[in-house]
Design a protein around this nucleic acid. Sequence first.
DNA 1: TGCCAGGCCCTCTTTAGGGCCTT
Length: 204
Amino acid sequence: MGNFTAVIIDFETTGLSPNMGDRTIEVGAVLIDNNRIVDKFQSLMNPGMRISTFIEEYTGITNKMLSTAAPVKDVMKNLARFIHQHHLVAHNASFDCKFLDAELARISHKRKNDFACSLLSARRIYQDAPNHKLETLVRYKNIKTDGTYHRALADAEMTAHLWLRMMADIKSEYGLKNVTFQLMQQLGKVPKKKVGEFLKKNGA
DNA sequence: TGCCAGGCCCTCTTTAGGGCCTT
């Protein structure tokens, strides 16, 4: 393993809030090491409830597909092994973090991994982008895709490429030798007008 | 019955409101 590894993760869910009873229905995750994807994890999961027509149409995941999928708790055990002790990244991490924590709690696991957010980083690095949706940013940076959106592994892979691209872009723009997870994480909290100042001061 | 996410971030701001993101 190189000195920079992270797992980029994405969930498809029955809705927006685990506090309102929503569950995860698919997870996709990729391990990045030395600026490339070196491992992948994907699974549908049966949430034990029917999903809405909106979610079927939004994701392409149907109730029929989920009827034969493994229970959420079984997938979560495997997911916990995959993410291990790696740093975690997601696009709008607060969303994926709350679902991950809620599902891990159901199997009496507790997340110890740090989370970073590609949405917060992108809002600072690409301030001229039309907007900061994952799909828009992928097109804005000409990141290759197979045209699949709103499926967990496809979105995790696109987020990983976006994340690597953001690190490369601030490296070249500010002449940085090394961009750490912690720097990217902290960047997400820096006031937008102070991004240049922050990177010049903290980037080694 | 009717309610219903929540964190970030900007601004006509902080005794608030609303758009952006995620499904």
